[in-house]
């Protein structure tokens, strides 16, 4: 019976993506198999909290190198979706794959992170008692095992890289300041900087411009579009203007399900989307 089920499973998946039948998935950074040009797969994913379905049969594919914007009203499940990708929340159903080979539902948070998925939280989370410099140093791409970190020393190249990012996030003068003293917007930047230090394949960015000035917003837009191509970027944002300025493809989430997908104009003229956003 079990074997038969397994075969059936394999068959079903095979119809869509033949890679999914594979068993073990070695976690090697940079070895993400993107031969199908898709880097993230979410397939019929559902999650419920105490009976409330936060994510409901969600299908989402992110192309390699793409910049994707995800919008949706409050409580649509955008943050929960990121939780699922990064391993914070385990889906009740469905499969989540990174590239062709890595089953994210079977990996722990740190494995997912070291495999190359970086994340910025909705509420900026940085290490308050560390300096800005140290925050970046901690985030830096490196061997993060215990004994190795005990004896780790900063190489000149790494030092340079940190200063580079410090410049990008405009916190060069504050390098030695404890991060808790930063303003809300600066914290946002610092978190983005930490994301950059990780040098991930995929960046999940949850509401990056909350608390930023107009110039800073523009700068963020520039930064994110610049990252796309080499990295894949998924941005969740409520600010439509910002979304319009960066996005080629926009996905609208509603009640844990994809409501519409397409260019900003297409989406904005979609009657279902209009209803969700305007009609009650």
């Amino acid at each position: 019976m079990k074997a038969l089920d397994q075969v059936r499973e394999v068959m079903r998946r095979d119809r869509v993506f033949n890679f999914m039948a594979q068993g073990q998935h070695p976690v090697i950074k940079g070895k993400v198999d993107v031969s199908k040009d898709i880097i993230l797969y979410l397939e019929s994913v559902s999650v419920s909290f105490d009976g409330f379905k936060a994510i409901n049969d969600l299908d989402l594919y992110i192309n390699d190198g793409e910049l994707r914007c995800i919008i949706g009203p409050n409580g649509a499940g955008k943050t929960t979706m990121m939780d699922i990708i990064t391993g914070k929340t385990r889906p009740d159903e469905g499969s989540v794959y990174f590239g062709q080979t890595m089953d994210l539902t079977k990996m722990s948070e740190y494995e997912i992170a070291s495999a190359g998925i970086g994340r910025k939280f909705q509420k900026p989370t940085i290490f308050p008692e560390h300096t800005v410099f140290e925050n970046l140093e901690l985030a830096m791409e490196a061997d993060k095992r215990v004994w190795i970190t005990l004896f780790a020393r900063l190489t000149p190249a790494q030092n340079d890289r940190i200063h580079e990012v410090l410049q990008t996030i405009m916190l060069e003068q504050h390098a030695e300041l404890k991060a808790r003293h930063l303003s809300h917007g600066q914290k946002q930047w610092l978190e983005i900087g930490m994301l950059l230090m990780q040098n991930p394949r995929v960046l999940l960015v949850d509401e990056p411009i909350a608390g930023m000035t107009h110039q800073e917003t523009e700068k963020t837009a520039e930064l994110l579009t610049g990252l796309a191509g080499e990295h894949s970027v998924v941005v969740v944002e409520h600010d439509m203007e910002f979304v319009r300025s960066i996005a080629k493809t926009v996905t609208v989430l509603h009640e844990g399900h994809v409501l519409a997908e397409g260019s900003m104009d297409e989406v904005q003229n979609n009657p279902k989307v209009i209803e969700v956003y305007l009609g009650e």
């Binding site: 943050t79 939780d83 939280f121 909705q122 509420k123 989370t125």
Partner: peptide, 8 residues
């Protein structure tokens, strides 16, 4: 206890 366990 049910409820959102202090998410971010």
């Amino acid at each position: 206890q049910k409820g959102r366990a202090g998410g971010n």
